[in-house]
Every structure is written in structure tokens, then in C-alpha cells.
Design a protein around this nucleic acid. Sequence first.
DNA 1: GGCCTTGCCGAAACCGGTTTCGGTGATCAA
DNA 2: TTGATCACCGAAACCGGTTTCGGCAAGGCC
Lengths: 356, 356
Amino acid sequence: MNNAFTTISGAKRHNRVTISDMAAALGLTKSTVSRAMNGYPDISETTQLRVKRMAEKLSYQPLSHAQAIKTGRTRSLGLILQLSDHDAQRPFLAEFLAGVSAGAHNEGWTLTIAASENHEDMIETFRVLLRDGKADGFILPRAMRDDPRVRLLREAEVPFVLFGRQDDDTDCAWFDILGEDAMRNAVMHLVALGHTRIGYINGGTQYAYAGLRKQGFLQGMADAGLPIDPDLIAEDAVTIKDGAEAASGLLDSMHPPTAIVCAVDFAALGVYRAAAERGLTIGRDLSVVGYDGIPEGAHTQPPLTTFSVDNKSAGERLSNILIRRIRGEDLTNLRETDMATFLDRGSTGPAPSSKN
Amino acid sequence: MNNAFTTISGAKRHNRVTISDMAAALGLTKSTVSRAMNGYPDISETTQLRVKRMAEKLSYQPLSHAQAIKTGRTRSLGLILQLSDHDAQRPFLAEFLAGVSAGAHNEGWTLTIAASENHEDMIETFRVLLRDGKADGFILPRAMRDDPRVRLLREAEVPFVLFGRQDDDTDCAWFDILGEDAMRNAVMHLVALGHTRIGYINGGTQYAYAGLRKQGFLQGMADAGLPIDPDLIAEDAVTIKDGAEAASGLLDSMHPPTAIVCAVDFAALGVYRAAAERGLTIGRDLSVVGYDGIPEGAHTQPPLTTFSVDNKSAGERLSNILIRRIRGEDLTNLRETDMATFLDRGSTGPAPSSKN
DNA sequence: GGCCTTGCCGAAACCGGTTTCGGTGATCAA
DNA sequence: TTGATCACCGAAACCGGTTTCGGCAAGGCC
């Protein structure tokens, strides 16, 4: 540890253009350059223009961590991924990251991420990143109902944006996909195929999306004038195994469904498994609709009919919203939604004629 | 937990313990505190201990971006993900990130990542991150033969670590899984089952691993005294589709193989598809061995026999190596390897008796 | 014409660290 | 005793920015 400071030569001290270089080149002082760059009102229009032109010419960019020492802000977004739950987040991670990164990069921001195993680590990581000013704001994937991260960030008065909506929206910026619309459309699609006994397998009820999607399903059933059979509704299925177990419950009930809507694709794959065990052919004996658009869904037999989410675009918009939030934009402009895209593949078909 | 909020909040930065607080509390000057914290030799043992104890007590941590302004180093690792290439690295991304993040976090470092779409963007991103000192070093996943990233970082004299080995090792730190051993073991496993006509489907030949794994396969064949049939060797299959096409080529050749070794799990899944098209049952008519341990492999029928890679551990070790490299540790200590774990599942079986 | 704004910018302090330089007091050889 | 050496630490400059404060000239008002 004693010789810890004899390090490899860091980045070549490229003659980076500093604010002093700018000042010298313009015949101004550092302070004027700084205020011009930051658009202070006490700098004349013409001077500001001169400065910015020169910045362009010399390709001057203030060093973010030099600014940070005074301002506390470092032009970087924080993203904390919780990886303990093997949830549906993983297949999208690459796209999502690509989007978030692109959104940040577009504005000249960077992205610092921390992946934590469990909840305690995640909170601790938040603390450290906040304390050390490693991020000016946070993107919170997978909004939970009564989210502890939200409480923490609110308390600390740190900007954040949710992927998903929360019950208590006050001072929350968010972006979300209208999963409830998708669920309702799923029901309508099945009804059009003649199904009347439609089951529903919900996702993790700790997450905000579950309530919404379930509402969407119920709404669809109501719209179609179909009754709700509590035996045909399951909760908390986020893995294939969960889905298989939930589906088993529905299929072994007194009056099994002819179709099942799943809040999560993995659960839908579980339905495949449960169906196979019972000799049921998906798309003929049993229709299944999923949600998420995971890649595996394209390779199953038959391919899964589902709603696909553009996670890259979601990430990009989240970055964008967060940056605007940090810049102090009004909250009302910082709540956006998008729709999932229906992929009509092979896992749905006409309701089998009842020959029970 | 409650009082931690107030000290942690980013908005209320004035609570943060600075070096001046330390100096005041100790009756020393800032400079002494700084040198003590950094282990300079001109500070007495006892003073250094006093300082470090006080740091512990006040939980003082130098602000990394305040240090960076003078030292240029910010205690953060850079990771640039290229997402243009197909699903190749996606399934591992979550684990890999978790590992990298954990490895960084353990040492009090952070992780800034950038995901780029194409090669040009990636190079550009490198440049920006370097210029702005956003990362003290980089982790390069997927080492390529004659890697342009390596050239760039060498040029800039910036520390980096490769995931994978390169032809030209000079001044490279790296970590790698011994894929060649796995391929050789795959051959031995099949030979033990009686196979003699064994095909090989290689991965992306632009990557360094492809050459190594192919060598491993050839070595295994040589060890078993089996001849190499060029018709049974395909290259550059990294997706299911690639794998299916390559497998079709092998299976439709004059003397089709009874077993196929794949450098990449996705290719192996392609073999499943090609086999299905020809009415061949995997594990009986045709044996398949993959490599990677992607989750999908566990859900196929039969489950794929493969070599699984612990990507989380890999990420963690890469972080660790990079940090040591940045600290100036000798290169000879910074080259590590690990083994893949053989998962003997259902896709291999005894060689079918030749009834051609 | 004098006084008070107002617009615009320079001077200097400041942020939280690091690093150079120099100055003690103690030790030690002569 | 003296002069030189050394271990240890303080003073101050510095890094690349931001921000406060104040000065100066031009313009408005009476």
C-alpha cells in the first residue's frame, strides 16, 4: 500500500484546452468565459457569442469534475440495477442500457452504474454514489409500489426518474409503457377469437406494473361483458417455474380456461410447460398471450403471441427526462408514456369448441 | 438510518467531511492530512495512524473529483459495450455487469459505462471518456484479434484489461477462460461415447477466442487419433441462424458427423433446429456440445450439454486486475485464467451404430 | 449637470483536494 | 561545541473551474 501512488502514467496529458486558454485567446478573464459559457445574464450577447464560437473552434469543454468541485454536479446519470431477482429485466438489459447510454451521450452526459445483489447493497450503493457526488440524478428501473428508493431520494432531494408509474406521483418524473392497454387488447384479441373463459397470470405484485396490468385485464373482461372467475386469476409469477405452477393451478381447476393472458413473458413460457405436461397444444387447445417481447418467445413452438416493449427507446427517453429534470424543468412535462407493440404470432387461436 | 439521511443528501453537501475538517480535528494542516492519507514516506508512522484513525472516525473519504482535478485520476473504471454484434454477449451481460460492478465497488471505485451501436461510435466514445478523464482505465470485453481498441489505448497510454487473450500480448493485462481446454474436453467426452466423426462449428473468427477454441478442438481430435475432415468444420457461427446453416452444411455432407462441437451455445441451438428439420433426435441420432452456458440451453429438449462460464466472477476479476494495473502493479501478475464448468446434460449420447 | 441606475466585465476568493518548497528541532559525527 | 544531516511537518502555490464583489462607463431621470 505504501507505493500505491506510483501509478502507470495516466492519460497522456494532452494539452487539454482549459478555461485559461480560452481567456487568453479571447483577451478576457476566466470569470467572464465561465459566465458566458453558462449563459449568465450579465454577459453581453455579443461577448457570449464570441466565447461560444471560440469554444467551438478550440473544442473547449469544461472538465466536468473541475466544475463539480464547486457546483456539486458532474453531468452524469446514475443507474442502479438490482440483479437478485431473476426477473424479466435481464433479456432487455442490453437494449435498455444502450438506450440510456445513448440518451445520456446525446447531451454530453455520462452514465455511472452500479449493480447490486440485494436490496441492502442497493441502498448502500445509493448512499455512496450520492455522498461522493458520482451522479446528479438517478434512473430507477422497475418502479415498485411504495418504493424505498423513492423515499430515499426524495429525502435527499436528489432528482430521479422512474421507469414505471407509482401510486404516489407527487414530485415524481416518470416514463412508462401502457401495459394496461396491452392487457386489455389481449383480452379483446382473445374474445374476437371466441374465447370466453380467459385466465390471467399476474407478475410480481410488489411492482407497480402488476396492479396496472391486472386492471387492464379486468377492464378488458368487463368491456367484453365477461365475468371474472377468481379461480382463473393468479399472482406473482415472474419466472418460467412460477408461470408453470400458476398455469397448473388454472388448468386443473373445475372449469379450466381456454386462454391465458400473462403479465410477463416468462410466465407465458411457464404456461407452455404446464400445457405440454397435460398434452395440450398451445395455439389450438390453449391460447396464450404474453407481455414483454423477450427473444426466447420467438423461438418457442409455436412462437409466443405477445406485446413487445421497445426498451432501447425507453432507456433513451428516461435519460432525456432525467436530464431535463436535473436542469429544473417543470414536472408536468416530465411524464411520458409509450405503447407496447402487439406481436400476433402463433400462440393464440380460435377457442376450441367446448366438448367438455 | 434516520440521521444518515441528513449526512448523505447530495443537496446538503455542506455536511460532507472535508480535508479541512480533518485538519482542524487533528491540529494538522491539509497538506499533512493529504500526504498521510496517501501514504507519503515523509509522514511519521504515528501521524499517519492518527490521521487514518480519524478518517475512519469521521468517515472521511476524499472527494474523487476533487482529487481528479490535480491528479487526473477519478477512481472509476470504464466499460464500453458494443451492442451491434448479435446476441452473443447479451445473456451474460447482467452477470458480467454485476461482477464488474462488485469488483469496482469492493475497492471503492465506480463504473462508468457507455454502450455504442457501432464501431465508430465506440471509438468516439473512448475518445470522449479519455479526454474528459471519466475513466482511469478500461475493461475490454470480447478481445478481438488485432483489436483496434487496444491500439487506441496503447497509443494513449491508458491502462486497460482484456477479457480474452490477444496474439500480441505485450503490455496487455488480461483475464480469460480456457475455452480451448473445454473444446478438447468436449471431444474427449464424445470420443468416450464412441463418436469418431465429430464436426466443429466455430464462433466469430474476428474474435480471439475462435482461434483458441478451434485449436482446442483440433488438439482433442489429434489426441484421440482421429482424422480431421475439412467438410466437418465450419466457421463464424454466432447466432442460432448461423448455427443452423452451418449444421445443415455438415449434416448434408457426404459423411455426416454423429456429433458436433460448437464454440458458442447459440450455434448449438442452431444445430438443434437443423437436426429437427432432418428428423434427427438430439442426444440419440446426433450429439451436440456447446459452450457458454446460456440460460436457454437449460430449457431446450433435451437440455444442452455445454460448458458454462462464470461471467460474474470473470467481471469481478477483470475489475480487480484493472485496478491493480492502474495502481502500477507488474504486468506478469495481471494475467489470469479460469476454467469453464462442464454441464453434462442431455444433448450427448452414445454414437449411433453405423447403419449407413 | 449631478446623481443614480444599469450593463458589463475584471479581480480575487473559493471549492477540496495535491504537491512543491522550505523551515524547524533533533540527531550525529567531528 | 559546532555544523551537517535527517525526519517531519507547515506555508503556500496550484489544479480548472465557479461565484462574489466591486469598479467603471454609459445612460436615464429630475
